[in-house]
Design a protein around this nucleic acid. Structure first.
Length: 360
DNA sequence: ACATCCCGCCACATT
DNA sequence: AATGTGGCGGGATGT
């Protein structure tokens, strides 16, 4: 019992291909296109071949950096990378203010707490305390807030390399519960993955300790204030990066994969077992500046043709573990490159970066 | 052995 | 009540 993967059948299941980072890249690939201005969660889940739950993760994180904004139930506005600078500025601003109040000399304790305007229920008298509290409580633990605090920590800290353990500890404040710690770190990994795919941060290793850590890239090499500067590169902004999309392959070990991987058109080749071949992903930083220069890879399906607008509706068709095939057209392959360079405008000043490293 | 972190149950929020 | 959101952490996978 305890369903286990029978090491025999079902071809390859690769965890890496289903990482949030890859999903994020595909998500971006899909929506960072011209006509796009609205995103339907169901549509995204379907097209990417993943469960809706995962879309929430991505969207919540991206929203925290200004790439998206919630429009309505199930609907988001696509703001694009251009929204990042502004969002970062705001965060930087907030981080600055917050730091004043606390004596935070260094290890600022970014614990959730403060910064919360009680929305609703301003009326005195009897309100429903518990309800409001619970809501706040939930918000405090949201991925979105964590994401922002994560950024604030990076921005306000002079350290440019941080281990997730350190971050978790800092954001957790005093709570020294190992369980809370683990949970927090799990979330941080999620965030780190999408941030890596966006190139806001980069994974590295601590010089000596060897321990994995992340470096803040932010609006890398941006010229700082200069609303108009750096217009040159823009054109490249929307790339196609083609290759398929979808993650598909729902649950773990899906009985044999192969087969449906052909979506005809585009990407001929590899599918099925080749997955293993693609070696490392963006995490393995190597070249210092891996600009993929202009040539942005293949673009299998048409860029704009996808037009779907509105939303495809498919109601709740979940649980279909057998019909997956339908959902999973397109093959799994991803290019993890990165869209580096979204030009910038208000980059604010760069932070000091002495090789300070933090570690637990 | 330890670092990552997918997956999806199920509590809570909205409709 | 139904459906949308999204904490949370078990445990599988990667190195």
């Amino acid at each position: 019992m305890s369903s286990l993967v029978h090491p025999g059948d079902h071809c390859f299941y690769s965890r890496k291909e289903k990482s949030l980072g890859v999903l994020c890249s595909n998500f971006l690939k899909l929506y960072n296109q011209d006509g796009v201005d609205s995103i339907g969660l169901d549509d995204a889940a379907n097209r990417l071949g993943v469960e809706r739950r995962r879309i929430y993760d991505i969207v919540n994180i991206l929203e925290s950096v200004g790439v998206l904004s919630k429009k309505a139930k199930n609907q988001y506005f696509w703001k694009g990378f251009g929204g990042i600078p502004k969002a970062l500025d705001t965060l930087k601003e907030e981080a600055l203010n917050e730091n004043l109040s606390t004596s935070s000399s260094s290890l600022s304790d970014y614990n959730v707490s403060h910064e919360y305007l009680y929305e609703g229920l301003p009326t005195s008298g009897k309100d429903k305390p518990s309800a409001s509290c619970r809501v706040d409580s939930r918000k405090e633990k949201s991925l979105g807030l964590l994401t922002q605090n994560f950024i604030k920590l990076f921005i306000s800290s002079k350290a440019d390399l941080m281990t997730l353990d350190y971050v978790a500890k800092a954001l957790l404040g005093d709570i020294h519960d190992p369980t809370a710690m683990r949970t927090k770190v799990r979330r941080l990994y999620d965030i780190a993955n999408v941030f890596s795919s966006i190139n806001l941060i980069e994974k590295t290793h601590h010089p000596e300790s060897r321990k994995p850590a992340f470096r803040w890239l932010g609006l890398e090499g941006s010229p700082k204030d200069g609303p108009v500067t750096a217009l040159k590169f823009n054109e490249l902004k929307k790339r196609v990066f083609g290759t398929e999309i979808t993650n598909s392959l729902p649950k773990k070990y899906k009985k044999e994969s192969s087969l449906d991987w052909n979506s005809n058109k585009k990407a001929p080749v590899l599918m099925r077992c080749n997955n293993l071949i693609d070696k490392h992903d963006r995490n393995s930083l190597e070249q210092p500046q891996k600009h993929s220069s202009n040539g942005f890879v293949f673009g299998p399906f048409t860029p704009a043709s996808v037009a779907d607008l509105g939303h495809s509706e498919n109601k709740n068709v979940r649980q279909v573990q057998d019909l997956e095939d339908l959902a999973s057209l397109y093959g799994p392959r991803y290019s993890n490159q990165a869209w580096k360079s979204w030009y910038v405008e208000a980059a604010g000043k760069n932070h000091i970066q002495e090789g300070s490293i933090l570690n637990s």
